[in-house]
């Protein structure tokens, strides 16, 4: 009985401690003031307690973001652990908000907390979901845009976990390129 009790109390620890952030676009305030840390967790149980408690991404109002980042990394390019990195970007069509968005976002979160990128999981910084009228976006952010082997491995595994077919390609953009883009098109560094 004691063993059963002990087992029921054991929590399943994650490799990393993660922080969930929420961003709501209120024009009259500074950008940083619109970004809020929701909470941190480091066990499977606490992840589900949080996930089942918060509003699904598809129900957020336009202009809002969720971000999940390793503790100590802020969800912005400027963070020292993001600035040399980039992101694998998934752009969704408008109608996919009610069909695919929540599934893709949950799969993205599970890839992160489950450390599903094998030896390259430590290259992952976090993930962001942007709810936008012109089309929602989900991205996994990695640490070093120049680490081609790590970045392409993460992209391939990510695409597989999302169940995207071979014909569908996803692109990786370095934050430095996104930050300084001259047109609406950002240079794509890798494709899988």
């Amino acid at each position: 009985q004691q063993l059963a009790l002990a087992q029921s109390l054991v929590k399943y620890p994650l490799q990393n401690r993660w922080a969930l952030w929420f961003f709501k676009n209120e024009k009259n305030r500074l950008w940083q003031a619109n970004l809020r840390l929701v909470t941190k967790f480091s066990t499977v149980e606490d992840f589900w307690a949080l996930y089942d408690h918060i509003k699904p991404a598809s129900k957020l109002s336009c202009g809002c973001d969720y971000s999940l980042f390793k503790d100590g990394i802020e969800p912005m390019w400027e963070d020292s652990q993001n600035m040399r990195g980039g992101r694998w970007l998934i752009t969704l069509a408008k109608q996919q908000r009610h069909t695919k968005l929540d599934c893709f976002w949950l799969d993205t979160l599970l890839c992160l907390i489950g450390e599903m990128f094998d030896d390259y999981s430590n290259e992952v910084c976090g993930a962001v979901i942007n709810i936008r009228a012109k089309g929602d976006k989900i991205a996994i952010w990695t640490r070093e845009a120049e680490h081609q082997e790590a970045v392409t491995h993460i992209g391939r595994v990510y695409k597989e976990h999302l169940g995207l077919s071979q014909e569908v390609t996803i692109g990786y953009q370095a934050h430095a390129d996104t930050a300084t883009k001259s047109s609406s098109l950002t240079k794509t560094k890798f494709v899988v």
Binding site: Y12, L14, V44, E115, M116
Partner: peptide
């Protein structure tokens, strides 16, 4: 040793956790 969990375990956990 790295703490890794696969998708099935994590999803299964949500089900068990929700039914507790």
């Amino acid at each position: 040793e790295k703490k890794r969990y696969d998708r099935e375990f994590l999803l299964g956990f949500q089900f068990i956790f929700a039914s507790m």
